[in-house]
């Protein structure tokens, strides 16, 4: 029994059917962690991107080094670090939030590059044209650069959303009951790992296929020449 749901081991088929709702409980946690982690990554990435384009190199270089450091070290270790180290500084977060924070930190390194790449891809001629028209810098950014950068940025961010979802199982090590952790517990208690683990794989496959279709749709349907912000 798990999440108040009994499993039925009379046959393999009955077992699979009976644990499906249990796995769905785990799936909900997985999706929640994905979304929360993604939004943290979006926000932290924006901060990193801003620091990396700071006017002074005393901010730019450390920010670049930090991005590189985050990107080159494993999520698992970052997660352990946050999980064990934050409480020593008096900050005790629930395991779920620590996990989501770790995902957010790891992926902020990637999202910050997406922002930068998207902005830099807008042709420099556009900036020059705006300057020639005597547009104020702020107005140039919001009305000229952003509308052209966003259609490039969104599909790339979408791909990282899918990656985050695939990394959520790592959070199991700090007792977050996401889908894979749930499947393992079922396996531990019944000795039948094959069915729950295969089902988790299948559910992941379906989710990522749907998600990548969504990303492809965004990629082809966002106007590459610029988005109207009105």
């Amino acid at each position: 029994m798990f999440f108040g749901i009994e499993w039925d081991t009379s046959s393999q088929w009955a077992f699979a059917v009976s644990i499906f709702p249990i796995l769905l409980h785990g799936l909900v946690i997985t999706l929640e962690a994905t979304v929360v982690g993604f939004f943290i990554a979006l926000a932290l990435g924006l901060v990193l991107a801003a620091l990396k384009s700071a006017p002074t190199r005393f901010i730019r270089w450390p920010a670049k080094l930090l991005t590189e450091f985050i990107r080159d070290t494993p999520l698992l270790i970052q997660l352990f670090f946050l999980f064990y180290v934050l409480p020593e500084f008096g900050l005790t977060l629930p395991a779920f939030l620590t996990g989501a924070l770790a995902l957010g930190v790891q992926y902020s390194a990637y999202t910050s590059e997406v922002y930068r790449g998207g902005l830099e891809a807008v042709a420099s001629g556009q900036r020059e044209a705006a300057r020639a028209l005597n547009l104020a810098p702020a107005r140039t950014f919001t009305h000229i650069i952003l509308p052209q950068a966003i259609p490039r940025i969104i599909p790339a961010l979408g791909n990282y959303l899918v990656s985050i979802m695939k990394d959520v199982p790592v959070l199991g090590v700090v007792t977050v009951l996401e889908m894979l952790g749930v499947a393992r517990i079922i396996g531990d208690r019944t000795g039948g790992y094959l069915i729950p683990l295969t089902m988790v794989g299948g559910i992941y496959l379906i989710l990522t296929i749907i998600a990548s279709l969504g990303v492809r749709y965004l990629d082809t349907h966002l106007p590459k020449r610029g988005l109207s912000l009105k």
């Binding site: 979802m165 695939k166 990394d167 959520v168 199982p169 790592v170 199991g172 894979l180 393992r184 396996g187 039948g192 790992y193 094959l194 683990l197 295969t198 988790v200 794989g201 992941y204 496959l205 990522t208 296929i209």
Partner: peptide, 26 residues
Amino acid sequence: IEIFRGTSLLVQLFWIYFALPILGQA
């Protein structure tokens, strides 16, 4: 390509380590 890109590495690792022996037994 679709299966290994579409599922999580940890799921794959656990599947090979925990589930495959059971499948083998069967």
